[in-house]
Simulated scan of single mutants.
Amino acid sequence: MTGGVERRREPLDSSPGMGGDAVVAEFAQGEAWVVVVRGEFDLNTSGALAEALGAAARARPRVVVDAAGVSFADSVFLTLLLRVHGQTDLRVAAPSPQLVRVLELTGADRVLDVRVTVEDAVVE
């Protein structure tokens, strides 16, 4: 599934090598809704993520984005995070080195609540 988007409701396994595919999985953990993202996110592959984050922001007081598997993120991905940040308590957990670089270059790391682990992001 090159360049496609797969959406799952169950947690993903943490195996590397998702390639160019964008994968979104969602699940509840305590009071938070966790959205796990893997792969490359741009204009063509961010639709499922936008849908998942929008629904989560409307339904849950805290949304955690597990971003450990993000291999590429452009301005569309960053805009989604910033938009949801304004709608709910959004926490970005375990961002990949590529995403950390994007967040630092844009200053979004000073706006968004970035946590080292998903477990840390889920708790108060």
Rank of each mutant, 00 (worst) to 15 (best):
87 Q>T: 04
42 D>R: 05
90 L>H: 07
73 A>W: 00
28 A>V: 14
71 S>L: 09
27 F>I: 07
1 M>L: 08
5 V>K: 02
52 A>V: 13
118 V>S: 10
101 R>I: 03
123 V>Y: 03
96 S>P: 10
101 R>L: 11
124 E>Y: 07
73 A>K: 00
69 G>F: 07
84 V>C: 06
26 E>Q: 15
78 L>C: 09
107 G>T: 08
20 G>N: 00
120 D>F: 13
115 R>L: 10
13 D>S: 13
120 D>E: 15
65 V>F: 04
36 V>P: 00
58 R>F: 12
124 E>Q: 14
98 Q>K: 11
89 D>V: 12
76 V>A: 07
107 G>R: 10
8 R>K: 15
12 L>W: 02
107 G>L: 11
91 R>M: 04
112 L>M: 13
101 R>S: 08
35 V>R: 01
52 A>L: 11
48 A>K: 01
72 F>C: 10
72 F>P: 06
10 E>W: 06
105 L>H: 08
21 D>H: 06
66 D>H: 09
40 E>Q: 07
78 L>I: 14
43 L>V: 13
64 V>E: 01
49 L>C: 04
56 A>D: 03
8 R>I: 05
106 T>W: 08
7 R>M: 07
83 R>Q: 10
57 A>V: 13
89 D>W: 09
6 E>C: 04
8 R>M: 14
96 S>R: 12
96 S>L: 13
7 R>L: 09
56 A>G: 14
107 G>Q: 13
63 V>R: 04
68 A>R: 12
61 P>E: 14
5 V>I: 08
115 R>G: 02
82 L>D: 00
115 R>I: 05
51 E>G: 05
24 V>E: 00
85 H>D: 11
109 D>L: 08
42 D>N: 11
24 V>A: 03
121 A>T: 03
17 G>W: 11
59 A>C: 14
78 L>E: 00
17 G>K: 14
66 D>S: 10
